[in-house]
């Protein structure tokens, strides 16, 4: 149990997917302009990441490794993730429209989100067990959400500030992300 807690903390804070592992930065900048979008995106990532983590682990353990096809990992993972996301999207749209209204629009964004693919690959690289995969995927996703929501909050405030013209928009956003990342830097060595 203690191991899992350690793993979760490590995934959320120490190895924060956005700010320490540099994964998923396109949506990080793209969907952090407004708090509501950020929250929606964060929820969607948690949802998809856990599912993708599990399903790619299964694919890897029971198919790729068994037949010695590890070199097909990249292509099979992306296919599986893309299919999964699209399936979930269609399923939600039909069956749980309320949830779809909140998360649906973020789902396609996730297909090409390197955070998802990245976490799946990390899970395999670290040779996690099934339970560890669930825990770490969840942890990384929460870390993603945490960073995204924090960042959205900061960006909403920055809009109020007088930023020199050349620094405006993406530029200042990146510098802010750097400072935010610096705060997460403090967690290094905690686990």
């Amino acid at each position: 149990m203690g191991d899992y807690i350690l793993l979760v903390i490590s995934c959320i804070l120490v190895n924060n997917i956005l700010l320490a592992q540099y994964l998923g930065n396109c949506p990080f900048l793209g969907t952090s302009k407004k708090m509501e979008t950020a929250v929606g995106m964060a929820m969607a990532v948690v949802f998809v990441l856990v599912m993708a983590g599990v399903i790619t682990w299964i694919a890897d353990t029971f198919f790729l490794k068994r037949f010695g096809l590890e070199y097909l990992r990249t292509i099979s993972f992306i296919l599986v993730i893309a299919a999964l996301v699209q399936f979930v999207e269609m399923f939600l749209k039909k069956s749980i429209p309320a949830l779809y209204a909140g998360l649906g629009i973020f789902l396609p964004l996730i297909t090409t989100n390197c955070a998802v693919m990245g976490v799946c690959l990390i899970n395999i690289k670290e040779e996690y067990t099934f339970m560890q995969v669930i825990v770490s995927s969840f942890g990384y996703a929460v870390g993603f959400g945490l960073a995204l929501i924090l960042f959205a909050g900061v960006r909403e405030r920055i809009l109020l500030a007088r930023v020199p013209k050349p620094l405006q928009d993406t530029s200042i956003a990146l510098v802010t992300a750097g400072i935010l990342s610096l705060t997460f830097y403090a967690f290094k060595g905690m686990v």
């Binding site: 396109c26 949506p27 793209g30 969907t31 929606g40 995106m41 629009i105 396609p108 964004l109 090409t112």
Partner: peptide, 17 residues
Amino acid sequence: GANCGGCGYAGCSAAAV
């Protein structure tokens, strides 16, 4: 279809809507 979020909308389908 790159779903990059560069437009400020959450993905191409959101932008299309």
